[in-house]
Design a protein around this nucleic acid. Sequence first.
DNA 1: GATTAACCGAGACGGTACGTCACGTCTTTAA
DNA 2: TTAAAGACGTGACGTACCGTCTCGGTTAATC
Lengths: 209, 209, 209, 209
Amino acid sequence: MAATAERSRRSDHNGDVTDDAPRRGRPRSAGADEAILTATLDVAREVGFRGMAMDVIAERAGVSKATIYRRWASKEALVLEALRRAINPLDAVDLGSVRDDLASYLRNLAERMASGNMADVLPHLIEWSVHDRQLREQLDDYVAHRRAPLVAILQRGIERGEVRADLDFDTMVDAFVGPFIYRKLLTGSPLDDAFVDDLLGLLLPTITP
Amino acid sequence: MAATAERSRRSDHNGDVTDDAPRRGRPRSAGADEAILTATLDVAREVGFRGMAMDVIAERAGVSKATIYRRWASKEALVLEALRRAINPLDAVDLGSVRDDLASYLRNLAERMASGNMADVLPHLIEWSVHDRQLREQLDDYVAHRRAPLVAILQRGIERGEVRADLDFDTMVDAFVGPFIYRKLLTGSPLDDAFVDDLLGLLLPTITP
Amino acid sequence: MAATAERSRRSDHNGDVTDDAPRRGRPRSAGADEAILTATLDVAREVGFRGMAMDVIAERAGVSKATIYRRWASKEALVLEALRRAINPLDAVDLGSVRDDLASYLRNLAERMASGNMADVLPHLIEWSVHDRQLREQLDDYVAHRRAPLVAILQRGIERGEVRADLDFDTMVDAFVGPFIYRKLLTGSPLDDAFVDDLLGLLLPTITP
Amino acid sequence: MAATAERSRRSDHNGDVTDDAPRRGRPRSAGADEAILTATLDVAREVGFRGMAMDVIAERAGVSKATIYRRWASKEALVLEALRRAINPLDAVDLGSVRDDLASYLRNLAERMASGNMADVLPHLIEWSVHDRQLREQLDDYVAHRRAPLVAILQRGIERGEVRADLDFDTMVDAFVGPFIYRKLLTGSPLDDAFVDDLLGLLLPTITP
DNA sequence: GATTAACCGAGACGGTACGTCACGTCTTTAA
DNA sequence: TTAAAGACGTGACGTACCGTCTCGGTTAATC
């Protein structure tokens, strides 16, 4: 009973694959979710997450405010999902050598950070996560997810004997990714291929035996 | 230049040494600035910068809202200055060797980042700077200022022959500081002495000849 | 013409009989207008139109301030309508003779002016109308409306041969109504039956052939 | 002691002929009273008594707000005096016949009411007097003072045998003055010589034997 | 085919905070 | 001591956005 009310009251955005109850009544408008999330990101980019008004999002999405609140419990929840959509994980290819793998991964990372959804959204994500435990956890998940390919690269490097086995994985990953975050968020220095090369030049000798 | 008009209209919070105009009329209440800024940070810590109400700050500071708006042009401007006050730069000592200097500097940095004003405030600063050019510039200034001691350490190291002269300063600094920022803002991993030691162990060999 | 846009933006307080547009969205709260106007007059009577605070009216009416401003464009507009409601026109009966008709009308007028809504409100109405063209016009309308029955009485008198046909209607009406206004607003002399009789005694002979 | 404090604290606008105490310190600025009162009326005429700001008056008078409040206890007190200055009584001449005297008096009254200080100020005076007993009394005084010449005219008329002796003075005066007030404040009809003639034509026969 | 239940848009609702403005007072320096 | 200048606490203003709540109308699955 409670579950039904719960479900009917609020969003289904939890990857339920099969909700076989046929759901009487008019089904939810098909493209609305997409339109709302898109509008959310658009508005956020224009006026910042601060200054972002639900009425504006609703109008932009061609949707009523009630429709939004039928699907997300709060402005935070909506923004959260919009952010999650905005950033999708990197995946790493196996090019045969640590150097090439790292170069590929870091170039990819640099490119994404330089502009695009993640670039626009990351600062807001971070700020929000300070006072929102739920977002903090999702952000942690995301970060872990993003670290995974890098860990895999290093793992393969160790197996191939290209990387020293006595180093802490976390510290290594931090050493590679940290400078990107730092430049992006604080120094504003360019995130280009030259930087990737410099960084690789600096760090690669360290991790090779 | 624009700043002059700005200053005469609103606050004098720019460390001007000599304003020799006789300043007619009742002078601004002495401790008010301090009280307001303190109240701002207090309230921000309690309820977040979001959820922070000007009326509450005013009451807390024992001051009227009008007095606040006489000194700062907006809520943003007030928070901005409160944030700037909350973080003051690190300075580096000369302990005789690059290793010791770096260790000292990074431990200091780790300590500050782990908790305290800067820790609380940095995420907000970053987020805000996305849509506020003025804050962005102030943040850049601050960052540059904070990088200075690290550059000095490396410079001394080169002069002593402890550090390779063929490396890019910026990249080196990024490699040292980036991981701290990354951990603080995204991974949430601890910023302790062990991490400092790991990082130094990883990076020091790279920069020594 | 401008009035149409005006009306669609703000209140419908103009007695439109047929607004056939289907009126989408949640309809305006039914009794709110009444509650707000009543509260307005109540508060005004207690603390004067000066000293009257919108928040107080809102609270008294059990309504939010936004609801008030959704229906009236300003404090002035609200008060204006409250005032208009406070005074409703006299109507005249036909008692068969000019003397009786006039006596009835003037006694009615005297009674209303002596106390009640109109008495409380007229001074404010007048003052406000000096700098508010819109109110000035509404006041003119109201005045014209109030003069109508008196004109009708005199008209009937002429038809019956009880009243001279060579006199200016306006001047006659002014001569009858003016003394009431004068006493009410400036001299503070009583508006009682004796005064009505005196005035009739003075003026009736003049207008009869 | 109390008297001294009283005097030094607040205004001297009570016709003190000789204040022989030498009054240490800087003397009060000479033309300030005049300048302030003039500015008050000017501003009032421009934006209404509502909307009239003390700061504006001060600036207009070339005077500080403190100076105003040193001389008048409140905004009301200042306006009150400004109003009193704005209206000065009519006086009637003796032209030999009631008809001529009345015509002269009423033409004078019409002229004053049509425009000028009294015309601008009367509505405000009336409104204010509703909630201000002191002003109400001053207004009554003024009204009585203005009625006096009219009473004198009628008195002379009775003595000459031009006016019936059995009529109530007050009612007669009301019948003559009331229509002016009514037109001025409510109908907005013109106050010209034609109106004076009409009114005289209507009322004179009534009061003659 | 009628019923019914959940949806939809529009938009009004009670709140809460905003930044502004005017009041009357207070506190400086200058005359 | 009074003046001009201008900052002060107070408190109302009118606006904006929140998240909720009707409305009249659609759109399926169920009866």
